[in-house]
């Protein structure tokens, strides 16, 4: 799909991605990236990838709990971003868009995984084959997620886990979470409060056993 560069109607050229050093990208604000996109969309996209690839990857990893799935999701998010004509439009909430696309893709993967697991269980076959293939990163994640509060999060619903992840792992503001989940700010406030109260209950039950 061709895209305008912002100034003219030149289609966005392919195969010119030159990822800039991460340190340079980290210091660039979203507004600056949008500003750069009006002159050089390719460079703006490079900066965007550098700035958000870690966070998008880890966001996908926290939801899917599978490093390879997370890798594919993060790739898809940025490829889709590359083809998204509004990505650098003034007023377009790029960060929220990236997290929203990522969250939706992860939900689909988790849902499909549960469905496939359910089918195999009904057929009387072990669904162990659908478990994640452990890489070194999966092993680290499993270890860290198997203890403390992160482990207690397993007892929460996927929706509650996602909103806690967006807030406390991905460090998004309340307004950004509202944009990602496409809900009102008040809804974000209540949706964040309930799982935290529940989390305390889960941890207390664990201590009592």
């Amino acid at each position: 799909m061709p895209h305008s560069s912002g100034e003219g109607d030149e289609p966005m050229a392919r195969a010119t991605l030159k990822l800039v050093p991460k340190a340079e990208a980290a210091g660039v604000s979203d507004e600056e990236i949008h500003d750069i996109a009006t002159r050089d969309r390719e460079r703006a996209f490079d900066l965007l990838v550098r700035k958000y690839r870690d966070r998008i990857y880890y966001h996908a990893l926290y939801i899917t709990r599978d490093s390879e799935e997370a890798f594919d999701v993060a790739q898809d998010v940025f490829v889709r971003g590359y083809h998204e004509p509004r990505l650098f439009d003034p007023g377009f909430r790029t960060k929220a868009w990236l997290f929203r696309v990522c969250t939706n893709r992860c939900y689909n993967i988790v849902r499909d995984r549960h469905r496939r697991g359910g089918i195999l269980d009904r057929l009387g076959k072990a669904s162990a084959g659908l478990q994640v293939q452990h890489t070194a990163i999966d092993a680290v994640l499993d270890r860290e997620m198997s203890e403390g509060v992160a482990h207690a999060m397993d007892a929460l619903s996927p929706e509650h886990r996602t909103i806690l992840t967006l807030r406390y792992f991905d460090d998004l503001s309340y307004q950004e979470i509202a944009d990602v989940l496409q809900v009102k700010l008040g809804t974000v406030m209540s949706r964040l409060s309930r799982p935290k109260v529940r989390l305390h209950g889960v941890l207390s039950e664990g201590e009592g056993e």
């Binding site: 195969a15 990822l19 940025f78 490829v79 990163i137 680290v140 992160a150 792992f169």
Partner: peptide
Amino acid sequence: LPPLTAPRAPQELEAALFDRFDACLK
């Protein structure tokens, strides 16, 4: 409640991972 901190992979793993990520995306 104890603080919710994001689990992260060790730096050397991350470096290899994101090198692969960049190459694949390109």
